[in-house]
Design a protein around this nucleic acid. Sequence first.
DNA 1: GGCGACGGTGAAAGCGTTTTCACTTGCCGG
DNA 2: CCGGCAAGTGAAAACGCTTTCACCGTCGCC
Lengths: 337, 337
Amino acid sequence: MARVTIEKVAERAGVSVATVSRALRGLPNVSPKTRDRVVSVAAMLNYRPDPNAARLAAGRTRTVAVGVVAIPIWYTGQVVSGIEAVLTNRGYDLTLLLIADELVRTRALGDVGGGVSKRADGAIIVDLVPTVTERLLLAEHRLPWVMVGADCPTIDSVVIDNVAGAMSATRHLLSLGHTRLGLISGGPAAFPSSSPPERRTGFLRALDEAGVRFDPNHERVGDFSALGGYEAMQALLDLRQRPTAVFAMSDEMAMGAMRACEEAGLTVPGEMSVVGFDDVDWAFTVGLTTVRQDAAELGAIAARLMIERLEGEACDRRLVSVPTELVERSSTSAPSQ
Amino acid sequence: MARVTIEKVAERAGVSVATVSRALRGLPNVSPKTRDRVVSVAAMLNYRPDPNAARLAAGRTRTVAVGVVAIPIWYTGQVVSGIEAVLTNRGYDLTLLLIADELVRTRALGDVGGGVSKRADGAIIVDLVPTVTERLLLAEHRLPWVMVGADCPTIDSVVIDNVAGAMSATRHLLSLGHTRLGLISGGPAAFPSSSPPERRTGFLRALDEAGVRFDPNHERVGDFSALGGYEAMQALLDLRQRPTAVFAMSDEMAMGAMRACEEAGLTVPGEMSVVGFDDVDWAFTVGLTTVRQDAAELGAIAARLMIERLEGEACDRRLVSVPTELVERSSTSAPSQ
DNA sequence: GGCGACGGTGAAAGCGTTTTCACTTGCCGG
DNA sequence: CCGGCAAGTGAAAACGCTTTCACCGTCGCC
């Protein structure tokens, strides 16, 4: 099965390689008759252009890089699969960049000129806000960027309204009559995203709105994992004056928190209400009240924005926000006396 | 910031491009002195070879394609992140191929000649067993393949011992005194992998070993999701003679199953024991007894095998099996009278 | 002291596309 | 009828590397 190149197609179709190239890519200035012939010859020979040659010649890769902090989180997986779906559909390749630590981060973002810019036409960054320095570097290599999960000024961003989401969760708790609320957050260090501070803001704003005071001691940081939530809740339970309800910034942390309660002999929601964030697929199995976000849709939108940037004409920076929705289940109730 | 090409480096270092190429890639036949000079000039100019040009010239891509069925599953995310880690570490790119349906599957596997073989040097397929026809097609384009999660004859495979894993779970249930066991499996249709039948085999073998009879009516298929497990368990609970314990082929299904029990007013493990498979990060939050597998490690091993195939000398087909481990928590106990 | 071998190097030929540019036609309007 | 313009086409120059091959010293060896 010898390599079939564009040249062979040209030969068999009795035209030049230039014409084949044009015909196959749907460019103008090819007569319908010629185009048909070329297309059918190509099909017959089962010709596939070599993407590398095309990339080299055209200077475009038809590839977008996706940078994520950590795949194994539910949220990340959803986003990536949303991106993948539309990218594949539009004939783009997707190259994964796992940004595990500072080192890799530098390699991927800072040094992006050599790193990414020759491998991809653009990059979608999931839940990672670039530093100012990094932003400058990005700008230098005129690569299109789109952020998902963080509203990054001057860069196309697709986000959820974390403030509103957190507020809805918090209001729900308040409306049930809770006045001593706990917060299981994710520290910037653990998860260098903008979501934690935003959700924190929403949480505090709802309290403020209701005139309820927040005891700073009632905030613990998890690392967005079940274990992190578990330990955070244990710490809260150790307090002499414990909260009667907690808002965890992710479902996984919420589940860890519920576990801690159970081990401490507290019933949920009887003695402790818990609300999470995400609505992961299995959240219903523990009756978790949570804030639903459609992470896959976030990814899909980001991919669409990217393709528009790559193929459409220049346009202003865009920001799209997809709504969240509180879903009430059985992990929350009025506080017991 | 003009493009810095290999030519510029050669110029500044006072050598030919050939020498630069050799020096930078650590090839022999370059004097240490020359190499040092080239390396430092390259660093100074911040030179990065264009991967596309390199691929075109060398005929190798330093990219491996990863085909997965569905990213959002815990298992898949783990595997991919394991792969990513070692690939990145060794200077390979990773391109993601989401194989969602038959259509894509054909495109990705069947048509692999044009599809993958020019984009990647090899492919790692996660949890998908290719049909015989597909295997022939793969063989045609001399691409190295490695399977993870399925022992595919003639192809390098890294797997866990599903039979043994399922047996350990089942024996555990039996040793507690259960004799009416239920099985929540994943149909081949829902999840075209070899794990479900293998786990089923292990389950049946353990029963057989113990001389316990299996009521075929006690098997329901989920789709490896929490919801699937939930519905499967509901069906089991509807039986006039229900099992007293069930083995679910994934933790997510197990959690759905536990939920169904709770809704039906059954206590776990009091009136129903449940054991899962995977040991997902949050399994401990519901006290799930389960069979732990290190999915990230599976991915890492697969990536290493792939790199060896690509860089090492030819060798026989390899099969590596990584052990599983039963972890006992609180979702299982002796049956109630 | 000659001779082959070998390490180090450069020139140049690809690799398989895309894209520019120049060159035909055929057609239209004047 | 002729000049000009547009559509259709091909030749050839990139694109930025890798790799082969030939070449030149230097060495070790008989």
